[in-house]
Design a protein around this nucleic acid. Sequence first.
DNA 1: ACTTGATACCTAAGAGTTTTATGTATGTTT
DNA 2: AAACATACATAAAACTCTTAGGTATCAAGT
Lengths: 125, 125
Amino acid sequence: MFVEVKIKTMLYSSELIKGTLRTIILKLLCDQQKMYGYEITQTVKDLTQGRIQLTEGALYPTLHAMESEGLLTTEVEYIGKRVRKYYSVSKQGKAKAGEKINEFAEFMETMRVLLNLDLGTLKVQ
Amino acid sequence: MFVEVKIKTMLYSSELIKGTLRTIILKLLCDQQKMYGYEITQTVKDLTQGRIQLTEGALYPTLHAMESEGLLTTEVEYIGKRVRKYYSVSKQGKAKAGEKINEFAEFMETMRVLLNLDLGTLKVQ
DNA sequence: ACTTGATACCTAAGAGTTTTATGTATGTTT
DNA sequence: AAACATACATAAAACTCTTAGGTATCAAGT
């Protein structure tokens, strides 16, 4: 006899994730050299313990856009009869990745201050 | 003779700020008891050294929505002939503030891991 | 043989939030 | 008088993501 256990994983109310998709893609691709779309969704899910689950409806159009902007390059591979489209960062994409990650780090720091600071002494006259 | 010095303050590419507006509003109002819209924009600008500049077109509709959702209450005050609309958090709003701030903290931690982790050893089979 | 679930790609309508562009009006500084 | 800051507000457009669908291969269970 088996008992099914459901662990409630806190999924972020998705509005927070908005605006981070490109940064995530660029970071993963810089670390991994090349990845395909589905792999990106699974890797993010694994790395975040299911907290961030990229939807394909958001991911694929974004990958296409980033390719047409010259940030990513692609190569197709066949696994049996199944297609895989691998994405890699271009030189331009690497530069962008640095900017984006930097920007996000600064944003986190700013928000940390904003949400933790005691405002008791501050006043707008 | 004076030399004008312009300090380039890095304004966040605004997509990162998306989804954080309500959290910011709730946090400020929990700390300050009551604030009016314009004051919120100025306070956020000051606290973040100009890095986050809320636009009025985003702020006012959001304040109205939060009021109609029962998270905020209002009282009008006259400064001379000029109207000020003060917002305060309701009991419900305080609970929501706690949730939101918590959620954001967890989100930051998740993103920190995601963007810093060395992925060299990981593989999706 | 059939169904289910995972893998793997894709698009399009709709929802939601923010930007940009206005508008009104008072008070203060140059 | 003009410019700027204070203070509210709305509406069209832009942008991103969700939801919902579609196609197809492969593995595993019934």
